[in-house]
Design a binder for these strands. Structure first.
Lengths: 135, 135
DNA sequence: ACTTCCCTTTACGTAAACGTAAACTTATGC
DNA sequence: GCATAAGTTTACGTTTACGTAAAGGGAAGT
């Protein structure tokens, strides 16, 4: 039997550290499609995963639309050959961007190492030139 | 002698594929500080580097303010011990975020591999089931 | 002198991604 | 029975990061 577990809006808000407003906004945009029990939204595990993926995308600077596009790559809306080639092309482009971003991050990490080294050296010099109990 | 080369606004705009409006906006925000020759802006190599760093930051989703904060880590406005410790702390937090982003990217890259594999398999199946000249 | 660029400032417009407030319903605890 | 908590809709507000005219200055080519 399929996973029938459901989540309320505040369940998900708490879990992901976002506001209910944010989740409603995502629904407005069609990013999630909870069903209703009366008025109240009932989210499925699939919705939960989509939110997770959206937040992951956002962490590396993707817009919501880009997040959706990315997620949609997984869904098999690609029946014919035309669409498959188009999808493969999208995948390639996306990968290029991700690799560039990874390079950017590595560069920045290297920069941070350097800064930290300078800081520690500077601190060490301070201690050196200051009197301490051993003097 | 120091590098006296200068750049016009459109030099930099062209080089980085951004508009002059963007560069003026960055000046407005204090991200670059070109001197003037009459009315015209003259950018130094240092300005050029700052723009480069800003664009790098933006590629991984940093806000302009975060870009500035990041760049400022390199500048020695940190004289006393207090500031040095604070800076080291900032460096640590920033590194954590970068590592998380790197992980996100790796996950997404893995996802793309998967999608591409499925696409190619699907295409192969299509060719298999279609008649060709060899038949 | 006239056009053509490239540069300038001022200023209103815009898309994205929510925040925030108001006004209301529904279930739960005491 | 009434408050409290969690849910709802509607709608205007906000920040960021520029876009997009409007209106003009200054040098260079013909």
């Amino acid at each position: 039997m399929p996973d029938k577990r459901t989540y309320t809006i505040s369940d998900l808000a708490k879990e992901f550290g976002i506001t209910t407003r944010t989740i409603r906004f995502y629904e407005e945009k069609g990013l999630v499609t909870p069903r209703r029990e009366g008025q109240k939204r009932l989210f499925t595990p699939a919705d939960r995963v989509r939110i997770k993926l959206i937040l992951r995308g956002k962490r590396i600077g993707m817009t919501l639309q880009e997040c959706v596009d990315f997620i949609d790559m997984y869904d098999p809306e690609h029946n014919n050959e035309e669409q498959l080639h188009s999808l493969i092309n999208d995948v390639k482009q996306r990968r290029e961007r991700l690799l560039q971003q990874k390079k950017d991050i590595d560069d920045m990490l290297a920069g941070l190492e350097e800064v930290q080294g300078l800081c520690e050296a500077s601190l060490a010099r301070n201690y050196e030139s200051l009197p301490n109990e051993q003097d």
